[in-house]
Design a binder for these strands. Structure first.
Lengths: 114, 114
DNA sequence: GCATCATATCATTGCTCACTGATATATTAT
DNA sequence: ATAATATATCAGTGAGCAATGATATGATGC
């Protein structure tokens, strides 16, 4: 029986990029940052992030679909939590990297900010 | 004298998002991944990534401006290297997170891929 | 059932980015 | 100086995403 060996890494680059894009937005970062502290319901996230409610919901749907957060219904509230402590790890790693490259990132004009 | 206390985190969220966006592209991930192995000159990156030369140069300029890579001229070649081992750390952390959420990321339709 | 609160959905609009193709600059060798 | 190699630049084009506003769904208490 023939066997086709698929290079796992090739497919993974797209996945990695997709995962990075999950973090590459100020709104989602605010939400994830808040959830790293403690689980929160939507209107709490709205308060803390200052984002509009539909905006938070839209991003939560994305984060939920990607598996970055989980949700539980609690009466008429829905409580969200990060799905893995690795998310917090990733966020602190980025901060560590920012300590090194913050100046350059600030200066980089290629992304004009959104 | 009045003092205005600026929340450092607010500014940092934009920076974090910007830094994440540096990684949120398959082309740049390919380039960074290759450079994590060893320093390489541009045409080597072109070969290994399969990207066009202008495309590689454009992304390198961005990565250079952001401080994610450094460059040294070597005759008519220009050799690029990652600026910090933390970059490799970040990339492997993402892979670790992908082990947990890969299925969800794959299924998430919000980013249709680029 | 009705009113209210909590959250989700959806279409639209505007902005931003990635890639391409052509061209320019830089370095080395002859 | 000229040719050849290596890399950078830039404008244009196409596509995709984020936020908004309006509305829909769902749950609770009266």
């Amino acid at each position: 029986m023939m066997q086709i060996v698929v290079d796992r890494k090739v497919g993974t680059i797209e996945q990695r990029a997709k995962l990075f894009r999950g973090f590459a937005d100020p709104s989602r970062l605010s939400i994830l940052g808040a959830l790293c502290g403690e689980p929160l319901v939507v209107h709490e996230l709205v308060e803390r992030t200052g984002l509009s409610q539909p905006n938070v919901s839209n991003h939560l749907r994305c984060l939920l679909e990607c598996g970055l957060v989980n949700s539980d219904r609690d009466g008429r509230f829905i409580r969200y939590r990060i799905s893995s402590a690795r998310i917090a790890t990733l966020l602190s790693d980025v901060d560590a990297l920012l300590d090194v490259v913050a100046g350059g990132v600030e200066a980089c004009d290629n992304y004009r900010g959104r």
